[in-house]
């Protein structure tokens, strides 16, 4: 029990830090990466809270699909314009 509590705290702090970084980073690509890792952190959070099916969904859709959407958008824009 003790261990899980510590893990929860670590995950929580990491989530907040990553979210903060994602919002405040200057580069868009980096921000997206922070978002992605934050999403992975939330997957751990879901697992900790006994929601494995949600965790799987979040991992696949939230982390994977959303990140790739962001990246594709940024990449396609890079090709069109010069600044992103």
């Amino acid at each position: 029990m003790e261990l899980i509590n510590y893990v929860e705290i670590v995950v929580g702090v990491l989530l907040i830090v990553l979210a903060f970084l994602a919002i405040n980073s200057k580069s868009l690509i980096k921000a997206v990466m922070f978002l992605s890792s934050m999403s992975m952190m939330s997957v751990i959070g879901f697992v900790l809270m006994k929601a494995p099916d949600v965790a799987v969904t979040e991992a696949v859709i939230g982390s994977g699909l959303v990140t790739s959407l962001f990246v594709f958008t940024l990449l396609s824009v890079r090709k069109v314009g010069n600044k992103a």
Binding site: L15, A19, A22, I23, L28, A31, V32, L35, M38, S39, S42, G45, F46, M49, V54, E58, G62, V66, F70, T73, L74
Partner: peptide, 18 residues
């Protein structure tokens, strides 16, 4: 920044889901 705002929306949604 448009992308950043969408990103913030995502963060909010993750928080909400948690």
């Amino acid at each position: 920044n448009v992308i950043k705002i969408i990103l913030s929306l995502n963060i909010m949604e993750i928080g909400l889901n948690l």
